[in-house]
Simulated scan of single mutants.
Amino acid sequence: MALGLSLLFTGLVAADDFPLRDKYASVGVPPVETEELASSLDAMTVVDARSPYEYETLHIRDAVSIPLASRDFGESVLGLAKESGQPLVFYCNGVTCAVSYKAALKAKEAGVEDARVYDAGVFAWAQAHPEHTVLLGEPLQSADRLIANEAFQDHVLDEDAFYARIQSSTNPVIVDIRSKNQRQGVSLFQMQDRHVPLTNDNRELGGLVQAAMAEQRPMFFVDATGKQVRWLQYYLEAQGVTQYWFLEGGASKIYESMGLQ
Rank of each mutant, 00 (worst) to 15 (best):
L78T: 11
E131F: 00
A110S: 10
Q184W: 12
L41P: 11
R116D: 05
Q192A: 13
A107G: 06
M258T: 15
S76T: 11
G121R: 06
D160Q: 12
F73Y: 12
A110L: 11
Y55C: 01
A2I: 14
A128D: 09
S179G: 09
F162T: 10
V27N: 15
R203Y: 11
V89G: 04
M1A: 14
V229G: 04
A38W: 00
A104P: 13
V29G: 04
Y91I: 00
S6C: 06
Y91C: 03
L208D: 04
G206K: 08
Y101P: 08
Y163N: 12
D42A: 09
F189V: 00
A143Q: 09
L146Y: 05
G4V: 10
S84Q: 12
D16T: 14
H129Q: 08
V29I: 14
G11I: 10
A238V: 03
D72L: 03
V175Y: 06
Q167E: 14
G185N: 07
A214R: 12
R145P: 07
H155T: 07
V112C: 06
V77H: 15
R21K: 07
L205A: 05
R71N: 13
L3K: 10
K227S: 10
K108Y: 08
L140M: 03
L80R: 12
Y244D: 05
L198D: 01
A103K: 08
D72I: 03
C92G: 07
F123W: 15
R183N: 00
Q141H: 08
E36Y: 06
Y91P: 04
K102G: 01
G4H: 07
E131V: 00
S6M: 12
R145I: 02
P197D: 10
R203S: 10
D119M: 02
L205I: 07
G137F: 00
V186I: 12
S252N: 09
L78P: 09
N93M: 02
T242L: 15
F189R: 07
